[in-house]
Design a binder for these strands. Structure first.
Lengths: 153, 153
DNA sequence: TCTATATAAGATTAAAAGTGTCCTATTTAA
DNA sequence: TTAAATAGGACACTTTTAATCTTATATAGA
């Protein structure tokens, strides 16, 4: 499991949304410009984030993305796996005759342990943690969320 | 970092050699057949293992591979990284303007921690450990190492 | 010394995954 | 009704991975 560019973009996207607070609407264009992500590529990524319920996508004029969960409840694991699928470190050369019972394999046990550790590490970091630590990103001050103008439904 | 097929093959190859003991010579064909690895692909992998000093490659008739180190001193990390290079979990979208000081990045710190953990886990497992645990592989009894016939130099 | 056996090393190919791009809908605010 | 914004599918390009093929080289043994 190497974090793909799409995964990296997803983390940044959620980080931006988190900086503006749960419920704030941010346009795709703004996020794409800020991080220099191709807008249509970001669209694909956002669709996956929406599929797992992390964000809401608003179509139409003044559309954009809205973070649905509290940043304190969103973990890095969640965002990463929304994009690249459940983390696995090896395939154990699946379907090979030499390794069909991988649950009884010393080598595989090591990979499983490593995988569990990795997932645990990513699961214990929330986006509030990421925002509070100083980082290489500087986000604009969150706008006051004006429910009437944001057009929630 | 997802373990590539080449990496998986390398682990198996070293595991086989370890089962026959340090200094034993095993032909490439034998290992390739045993694990169902394409012989020329195994050749490439073996060359990388030789480059880092793990094995010796004997050319010519009755050639093959010889494990140079004690299996108790060979770690999984060593073998894996010999093939796929030093483990990294993310690229942090290198050279992007938005992330040039990744050492001051909260997100990156998480990845660095995860990476270090992963490497530590792989580093604490030796090939003696792997051999002693029961596994999905059953290796032939190691031949008595006959120095005169094995043709060491 | 000759021959069969075995690997070396480099070039090439094939397949898969990742990273976008483009075009035509569809939705929504005003 | 129109302009702004995203959706969704098809397509293209790039990189990585996984092999394969060919020619060269080394070695054991007759």
């Amino acid at each position: 499991m190497k974090l793909t560019r799409a995964g990296e973009y997803a983390v940044r996207c959620v980080l931006y949304l988190a900086s503006q607070g749960q419920g704030a609407l941010v346009s795709r264009r703004l996020i794409a410009d800020y991080f220099d992500i191709p807008a249509s590529f970001l669209a694909k990524i956002a669709q996956q984030l929406a599929k797992v319920g992390l964000i809401d996508i608003r179509q139409g004029a003044k559309g954009g993305y809205v973070l649905l969960k509290n940043p304190a409840d969103i973990t890095m694991l969640e965002v990463v796996e929304a994009i690249i699928g459940e983390i696995a470190l090896n395939d154990c050369v699946t379907s090979s005759d030499t390794c069909r019972n991988s649950n009884n394999c010393a080598v595989n046990r090591v990979w499983t342990k490593a995988r569990n550790q990795l997932r645990a590490t990513l699961a214990e970091v929330t986006f509030i943690d990421l925002l509070h630590e100083k980082s290489c990103f500087i986000f604009p001050q969150p706008q006051q969320i004006d429910i009437s103008k944001a057009g929630n439904r």
